[in-house]
Computed example of a mutant assay.
Amino acid sequence: MASNFGVLIKRAANDQDKAMDAYARQYGLTGVQMSMIDFLGRRSNDVVLQRDIEAEFNIQRSTATVLLQRMEHKGFVVRQSAASDARQKQVILTQKAVGLKQHVESYIDNQQAKVEAAFSPAEMAIVNRALKFWIEENRK
Results as ranks from 00 to 15, higher is better:
residue 1 M to K: 15
residue 1 M to R: 14
residue 2 A to H: 14
residue 2 A to C: 09
residue 4 N to W: 15
residue 4 N to F: 15
residue 5 F to V: 09
residue 7 V to M: 12
residue 7 V to S: 09
residue 11 R to L: 15
residue 11 R to C: 10
residue 11 R to H: 03
residue 11 R to V: 13
residue 17 D to Q: 11
residue 19 A to L: 15
residue 22 A to F: 13
residue 23 Y to G: 02
residue 25 R to K: 10
residue 26 Q to P: 04
residue 27 Y to A: 04
residue 28 G to E: 02
residue 28 G to Q: 05
residue 30 T to G: 02
residue 30 T to H: 04
residue 31 G to S: 10
residue 31 G to W: 09
residue 34 M to F: 04
residue 38 D to W: 02
residue 41 G to Y: 05
residue 41 G to T: 08
residue 42 R to T: 12
residue 44 S to Y: 14
residue 44 S to A: 13
residue 46 D to G: 00
residue 46 D to Q: 14
residue 48 V to R: 03
residue 48 V to Q: 03
residue 48 V to S: 04
residue 49 L to P: 02
residue 49 L to G: 01
residue 51 R to Y: 09
residue 51 R to P: 02
residue 52 D to H: 15
residue 52 D to W: 13
residue 52 D to T: 03
residue 53 I to P: 01
residue 57 F to T: 01
residue 58 N to Y: 12
residue 60 Q to R: 06
residue 64 A to K: 01
residue 64 A to L: 06
residue 65 T to K: 06
residue 66 V to A: 12
residue 69 Q to G: 09
residue 70 R to Q: 15
residue 71 M to E: 03
residue 71 M to V: 02
residue 71 M to N: 01
residue 72 E to G: 08
residue 72 E to P: 03
residue 74 K to H: 12
residue 75 G to L: 08
residue 75 G to Y: 13
residue 75 G to R: 09
residue 75 G to Q: 10
residue 75 G to W: 10
residue 77 V to L: 06
residue 79 R to G: 09
residue 80 Q to N: 11
residue 80 Q to V: 12
residue 81 S to R: 12
residue 82 A to I: 12
residue 82 A to P: 10
residue 87 R to A: 06
residue 87 R to D: 06
residue 88 Q to P: 02
residue 89 K to W: 08
residue 93 L to A: 06
residue 95 Q to V: 13
residue 97 A to G: 05
residue 97 A to Q: 10
residue 97 A to D: 07
residue 98 V to R: 10
residue 98 V to G: 01
residue 99 G to D: 07
residue 101 K to G: 01
residue 103 H to F: 10
residue 104 V to I: 09
residue 105 E to G: 00
residue 106 S to A: 08
residue 111 Q to I: 09
residue 114 K to D: 04
residue 116 E to A: 09
residue 116 E to C: 03
residue 116 E to L: 08
residue 117 A to D: 05
residue 118 A to F: 05
residue 119 F to T: 00
residue 119 F to K: 05
residue 121 P to S: 05
residue 123 E to D: 15
residue 124 M to Q: 06
residue 124 M to H: 00
residue 124 M to S: 00
residue 126 I to Y: 09
residue 126 I to Q: 11
residue 127 V to R: 00
residue 127 V to M: 11
residue 128 N to D: 11
residue 128 N to W: 12
residue 128 N to C: 00
residue 130 A to G: 00
residue 130 A to K: 12
residue 131 L to Y: 13
residue 133 F to E: 07
residue 133 F to L: 14
residue 135 I to Q: 12
residue 136 E to F: 14
residue 136 E to A: 10
residue 136 E to W: 13
residue 139 R to S: 05
